[in-house]
């Protein structure tokens, strides 16, 4: 995973609540067996409308998504995170994220930042009024900054440490292989097994 320390970029305001992962990346895109090439599927249905915010010329090259509440509900598809990253987003700001989407984003280095709804709306108003306005998402300082807005955000310290250092979860867990083996040795015999085939 790439390190995330801080990012500054222009933003896309997405004024919709309950943006589910089927909207972020529709199911027919999930047939791909790679982690890349999902950028054209991002918000595919909505992008058919030329007026959709992502299609506006002033939003090209934007890298921060400022979304409505309950972003990323529904399917566990990590493809939703890959699609946002493939498109060029580095961070998503919302007042509420669905749990699985949030977990997936942080495992891939897409920083999902939770801010109060009124702060999210101020950021949306700011970038709607001035499409060139930049937003800084600073993980080291745990702060979002834009013109007239300075907002601290919370993030689990362990998650933050992994993101700042770009650490691989599996390697970290395998440092505790002895603990796993000890747990396995003590498991009761009645626990289910898939093999041999019964």
């Amino acid at each position: 995973m790439e390190k995330f320390t801080a990012h500054t970029g222009r933003a896309v305001p997405l004024r919709r609540s309950n943006v589910d992962t089927d909207q972020i990346i529709p199911a027919h895109w999930l047939k791909k067996v790679t982690r890349n090439g999902f950028e054209d599927g991002l918000f595919e249905a909505w992008r058919k409308d030329p007026e959709f915010v992502l299609n506006r010329p002033e939003r090209q090259g934007a890298s921060v998504l400022v979304a409505g509440p309950e972003f990323g509900t529904g399917s566990s598809r990590e493809h939703a995170v890959w699609a946002l990253q493939n498109y060029g987003f580095k961070a998503v700001i919302s007042s509420r994220f669905a749990d699985i989407f949030r977990g997936n984003s942080l495992k891939n280095g897409l920083l999902t930042v939770i801010l109060p709804q009124e702060t999210v709306e101020r950021l949306q108003e700011l970038v709607e009024a001035d499409p060139a306005a930049e937003i800084t998402v600073d993980l080291e300082a745990r702060q979002v900054r834009a013109e007239g807005v300075t907002a601290d955000f919370e993030l689990d310290e362990n998650v933050r440490w992994r993101l700042l250092n770009g650490l691989d979860d599996i390697s970290l867990t395998l440092q505790h292989e002895d603990d796993i083996a000890a747990y396995e040795a003590a498991r009761p015999s009645f626990k289910p097994r898939t093999l041999p085939v019964a």
Partner: peptide, 30 residues
Amino acid sequence: GDSHTSTHGAFGALAFGIGTSQVEHVLATQ
């Protein structure tokens, strides 16, 4: 790697959907 894994909670199992990074993590470490 499917959000409807919550189905299995009907048996008193703690069952939940995970993303592909976590699928890899479970495959490698259980």
